[in-house]
């Protein structure tokens, strides 16, 4: 299986992507910049699901809760101790990763529906814990303020653009790391364990440990996404991390193609675009308010079902499979 040349880490590609994003953020309007920041947050969160579900084969419906852990860690440090913002984000990753390790240790003994149900119980239970500790601000939540953009960026550099820069940078760094982790020996051992656990164990992989590691890394990434989400909203509260968030992330991952990291941008853009599309559709139809407010939810859930039924492995993977089939057919006719 060893490739003859050392695989490149694609660093220049990601740097180029960053430059494109910086230029883009300068030419679009404020709303788009804000949506761009949201997309970047989703990219990070969905890539954590892809790593966990697509590669290591574990389902989590509790990633909303892990995002909450990261967000609260960052907000408490910021509000109580006025810690520099970069350290807040690092703390978010670490706190969520610790939570993920604990959850992963339990998860390694569970499979499929058991794991899904357990993480579901966590997603419902954990945010309500915030009401138990006064330092977490109860139902009201905590303010999370990353501060104004540095003056060196110019007078007319807006707050939203600053959010976008932070989120986009975080997204590029985490995508780059995830990509390289997935291509490393860890990524291969996850895939081996997902495909056939017994065979992987025979090949010398400690599948239990590799599953816990996948949970830890995935949780850390989710924690970063949680802190960034809190940044774009400005506060952290239990209601910012509802069960619906965990479901949206799963939908995003399925739309992206559960095992294609490159598709992650598809899922993120769709998740951000759906409310807007639904709004347009509802207005065009002139429908009542209860239809308008619930249309986005219906579209997201409907898409989830349709994707699982008809493009189960994602659009990118589907296209690749079709192309491979086509080529195979072509080659056999040539002979």
């Amino acid at each position: 299986m060893h490739k003859s040349k050392k695989q490149s880490t694609h660093l220049p590609l990601f740097i180029l992507g960053g430059i494109v994003l910086v230029i883009l953020s300068g030419i679009v309007d404020e709303l788009r910049v804000y949506q761009g920041a949201t997309i970047a947050v989703y990219v990070i969160a969905i890539s954590s699901i892809i790593l966990l579900t697509g590669y290591s084969g574990q389902v989590s419906l509790g990633h909303g809760a892990l995002m909450a852990v990261g967000a609260y860690a960052a907000a408490v440090l910021r509000a109580e101790f006025n810690v520099p913002i970069i350290l807040c984000f690092i703390a978010a990753v670490l706190a969520a990763a610790v939570g993920g390790t604990l959850l992963g240790a339990a998860a390694a003994r569970l499979s499929g529906p058991y794991l899904a149900g357990t993480t579901l119980a966590l997603a419902i239970g954990l945010p309500s814990l915030a009401n138990q500790f006064p330092i977490l601000g109860g139902e009201q939540g905590l303010a999370f303020d990353v501060g104004f953009p540095p003056l060196a960026l110019g007078e007319d550099f807006t707050q939203y653009k600053w959010y976008f820069w932070i989120a986009a940078l975080a997204a590029l760094i985490s995508m780059w790391s995830v990509r390289n982790i997935l291509n490393s020996a860890y990524g291969r051992s996850w895939r081996a364990g997902r495909g056939n656990e017994v065979a992987a164990q025979l090949a010398g992989i400690n599948t239990a440990r590799s599953k816990v590691l996948a949970f830890t890394i995935s949780a850390g990434i989710a924690g970063l996404a949680g802190a960034l989400l809190a940044m774009t909203i400005g506060t952290v509260s239990p209601s910012a991390f509802p069960l619906a968030l965990s479901f949206s992330l799963l939908t995003g991952a399925v739309l992206s193609g559960i095992s294609t990291l490159g598709g992650v941008i598809i899922g993120s853009v769709v998740l951000v675009a759906i409310p807007e599309i639904a709004d347009v559709v509802a207005h065009r139809l002139g429908s009542s308010e209860s239809v308008t407010t619930n249309l986005p939810g219906l579209i997201v859930s409907g898409l989830l079902i349709l994707t699982v039924l008809f493009v189960p492995n994602g659009p990118v993977e589907q296209h690749r499979a079709r192309k491979a089939k086509h080529e195979a057919a072509h080659n056999s006719t040539k002979k």
Binding site: V59, L250, V308, P312, N313
Partner: peptide
């Protein structure tokens, strides 16, 4: 890769 999680995802979609 989806086979193991497809029913879970489909029923969650149905819930939504």
């Amino acid at each position: 890769p989806i086979a193991g999680v497809a029913p879970i995802i489909a029923t969650l979609g149905l819930l939504g």
